[in-house]
Write a protein that binds this DNA or RNA. Structure first.
Lengths: 198, 198
DNA sequence: AATCTCAGCTTACAACTGTACGCTAATTTA
DNA sequence: TAAATTAGCGTACAGTTGTAAGCTGAGATT
């Protein structure tokens, strides 16, 4: 294995180790450089060969989480095209994502209100991204102006994220009920917005 | 001053000191016993005369924050009775609360998704309380069944809290815009829910 | 083949943490 | 007034943290 390959592999080990540590009782600001290094199987000081700071690692993790989120959206769109309601399919996809990538979603959720301004901003950008893409989709699908679509998209994303937060604490059957509730609530928003069309 | 009075005063000093430390870059799990004690003007070991743990202090703070939230609701109701739209008045009251009690709201917001299951549950209870009271109010005001009112109340509280989170990062003019946006979104929910009324 | 580069290591240190232990001084109780 | 209680203190210790300094050995370059 070449030196470059080895380095990339170690870097990935660090990232994976960090995600493993980010369980329900650990936030980015609560995992230490030494802890991550230990879990990645390297000496604490070797960490610096890959990241300037633990903050640089944190931002990398947020980026990766954002990436996963965007992939989720693409997946949802593909599923919508093969039939099934927009709201139902989107929520189902989201809930599956949370189940399969719990720590990734938890990272976004937690750092969104966390103690680091840099992380908060990074997460905010990802969510904004999410809202903008949904706005475009709504404009395209319904016949509404940008202002109305944007309000609607923002409300929907907020409701889904908030429901996701609750789902993290819930077991499988309760998770399903949370999904159903948020679907109804998204329909409220959708139908309520229509009234204000032009 | 009696011994009991003195003790209560010191206890309050500790609580106030903790709230002061809970600014934008400090969470409950990030403030240390020694730090709080220092800010309260007592020796680290004296802390134990008042709280078993720093966790016990944390739960106390969450309780106090929940109390403040409930007082907010009462205040909003009083203002509604003296005229003004329900949604407008409620959102305005909420935004004023956030401005005047930033650290209190931040505590709730942060610990809602924080690293301590005990804190998360404590905050959740407070939010549930909030939702239930709003549910009752909606049942009373509109003519809807419990199921529908509950869905509506939950959606509204989630939207308002989420907007509050964004407002924390914003300056005064942007805060006002956030307020206006969430007002529109609450109307979406309200009007959308009406459609499903039996 | 000789040289350079650099990922990872060991050692070291100062700063901080929670908390155990025992003392003091002053209020409260008997 | 004598005895008991207790809020607060000082000292102490083991554990953790981030990171500086310098070494090693193996891959990369010439």
């Amino acid at each position: 294995m070449s030196r470059q390959e080895q380095k990339l592999k170690t870097r990935q080990n660090i990232i994976n180790a960090a995600f493993t540590l980010l369980d329900e009782n650990r936030s980015l600001s609560a995992i230490s450089l030494r802890e991550v290094s230990r879990a990645a199987g390297i000496a604490p000081t070797s960490f610096y060969r890959h990241f300037k700071d633990i903050d640089e690692l944190g931002l990398t993790l947020v980026d990766e989480a954002g990436l996963a989120l965007r992939q989720l959206m693409r997946q949802a769109r593909r599923r919508i095209e093969t039939g099934g309601g927009v709201i139902d399919t989107s929520v189902d996809t989201f809930m599956e994502f949370i189940t399969a990538n719990t720590n990734v979603f938890r990272l976004l959720l937690r750092e969104h209100t966390g103690t680091s301004a840099a992380y908060r901003m990074a997460v905010l950008r990802e969510i904004q991204h999410f809202i903008e893409e949904l706005t475009d989709y709504i404009i395209e699908q319904q016949n509404v102006d940008h202002q109305l679509a944007s309000l609607q998209a923002e409300a929907m994303v907020r409701l889904v994220f908030s429901a996701g937060a609750e789902a993290l604490e819930a077991d499988v059957p309760l998770r399903k009920e949370i999904g159903n509730r948020v679907k109804s609530q998204l329909r409220f928003v959708q139908h309520g917005a229509v009234i204000y069309r032009n």
